[in-house]
Amino acid sequence: MVRTIGSMFPEAFRHLWKKRATVLYPFEKLELTYRYRGKLEFFDERCKGCKVCEEDCPSFAMEIKDEGKEQDGKTKFRRIYHTDRCLFCGQCAESCMSESIILTKEFELAESDKEKFTIESTYSTEIIAKEREVKEDG
């Protein structure tokens, strides 16, 4: 078998004059792909209250609470989203048939205050029957 000694030398020496590979994170940021799964954003006006997102969430990060009827016949809902529990799988966005959940590129979610992990919103909408469709990311 061929034996060499210090065969990494040329490579290492060459890199003395090369730019570092390290990305100095807080100052420089890498560009994320558009498919990145970060913090969720909600378009509550589109929600139909089917609760599929709650049902499919593997980590109980999404809660849709039924708050009773309003005068105009719509149902009031409260959405509680726990960023600390969410594992950013995007299953909720995929299961939602009305596209009211969108994944953003936001990933710097550390907080020192536990309260801030819970995001709540209330809205009213007409309930429609559960139905599912299969989506493809284009």
Binding site: L32, T33, R35, Y36, R37, F88, C89, G90, Q91
Partner: peptide, 12 residues
């Protein structure tokens, strides 16, 4: 992997 799936580690 990130380009195809969206994430680096847990591709989902």
């Amino acid at each position: 992997l990130e380009m195809i799936t969206g994430n680096r580690v847990n591709y989902g």
